[in-house]
Write a protein that binds this DNA or RNA. Sequence first.
DNA 1: TTCATTTGATAACAAATGTTATCGTCTGCC
DNA 2: GGCAGACGATAACATTTGTTATCAAATGAA
Lengths: 191, 191
Amino acid sequence: MFSQFRDKLPLSEEKWNKYVGYFNRIEVPAKTTLLEEGEISKKLFVIEKGCIRVWFNHNGKDLTSQFFFENQSVASIESFMKKFPSPVFVETIEPSVLWWIHKNDVDTIIEEIKEIPELRDRLIDMLFQRTFDYMKHFFSFIKDSPAKRYQSLIEEKPQIVQRVPQHYIASYLGVSTVHLSRIKSKLLHEK
Amino acid sequence: MFSQFRDKLPLSEEKWNKYVGYFNRIEVPAKTTLLEEGEISKKLFVIEKGCIRVWFNHNGKDLTSQFFFENQSVASIESFMKKFPSPVFVETIEPSVLWWIHKNDVDTIIEEIKEIPELRDRLIDMLFQRTFDYMKHFFSFIKDSPAKRYQSLIEEKPQIVQRVPQHYIASYLGVSTVHLSRIKSKLLHEK
DNA sequence: TTCATTTGATAACAAATGTTATCGTCTGCC
DNA sequence: GGCAGACGATAACATTTGTTATCAAATGAA
């Protein structure tokens, strides 16, 4: 799982083995809840195989805010970093193979990493990138119609359209399941 | 402008004076463009007095994505950090008193600050906070109606409602000016 | 002051989107 | 193989939101 990064990170053999040793492999079926709303997130997951969604309940409606696939790391970021009760659920969509690491061990790694300028800067870059991604998604809500957002999704994140049940995608795009179905149908018949 | 921070930052007198010396004070009228779309952002602004909006043109429509007030710093963040052509305009709304600093000097400060763990961590915290803010704004688009978003704005960012012309607020909330006017009217007549 | 411009409210109509209900298909499971 | 539940399409209707146009009030500049 992690060997692909081995030669890209300036870490001693000793540190590398220590860090990799923190991770635990698990296999879980589809629809497994990895974190409950209200719980304080203690685990960060990395996906070897499968996919995961982050969702929350709003007045009885199941609203999905994010999707994750192979090689991405997943947590309720605010809960994990700041020890707040999680506002969201984290749940597998497909049967998945995951590696998880405890928050204490992440903290250890981050503290040590900050002393290595190259990795520290990479961490900061990652945080910037995450902000840019959210900005982009937010922009699409003030400038595009739902139909346009769906088309962008097909182009920019085809995995979502291909692997995720449609009713989860609907709330992610901010529309009802019925309307998303209409959008798809219209796209088909126009071409 | 900056003396309020003097005793809160672990900096030598020498460094402090050097950093403060990087800043330039300007006074500008309302509707002054501080950064054009397509331009590469070289200046970071701090607002002493006044307010600023960030906006972009989409198919001839003027869409506002952010507002800034006293003591906030403003730039086209992606352009400033990564030297990309800015996707947005930056423009004053009110006559304003601003302090600006050149990107080169910001880079100098950031590089030096990273060696001070307390400030380095504060920088990282700031980046997290910015991401959380965007997440929250994004959530409101998938869970709330425009009317609810407007009410939240009144509660959480009253400055915007009080100081910003309404047609800028409309696009920020993702609705037409006519519809925002309807929302206000409905709120009034219900109470 | 006076006039042009900006800003905001409102009406009338068009278009987009939500809601509820029904139906068919598919899938996993026994 | 058969069944229950999940998933998605579609129709009919209700509601929300956008568009265009008009008018009034506020604002700013000469």
